[in-house]
């Protein structure tokens, strides 16, 4: 239903809400985004920058995880 498309500008709140399986990526990478009050403001790009990881790598992991969500496909 919900096609997986996670642009760099999507907020951390939105990708977690639409594809809850992406939370696994955040936990694995020890990121504080789950339940973070700033998740509604920070984008995929911001999060990657905050943690000093290449945005493309991060985005790919999120998309892979999102594809596992029941809502996806």
């Amino acid at each position: 239903m919900d096609e997986v498309s996670i642009p760099e500008t999507m907020t951390a709140e939105e990708f977690q809400r639409r594809w809850p399986t992406t939370i696994g990526v955040l936990i694995r990478r020890r990121m504080a985004c789950v339940g973070c009050p700033m998740a509604r403001f920070d984008s995929v790009r911001d999060v990657a920058q905050n943690y000093g990881i290449p945005v493309e790598d991060f985005r790919r992991e999120l998309v892979q995880a999102a594809a596992q969500s029941p809502a996806a496909g």
């Binding site: 504080a32 973070c36 009050p37 700033m38 403001f41 920070d42 911001d46 905050n50």
Partner: peptide
Amino acid sequence: PHQLVLVAEDL
């Protein structure tokens, strides 16, 4: 904001 989150969460 992220730096403040680190302060708030004591990280």
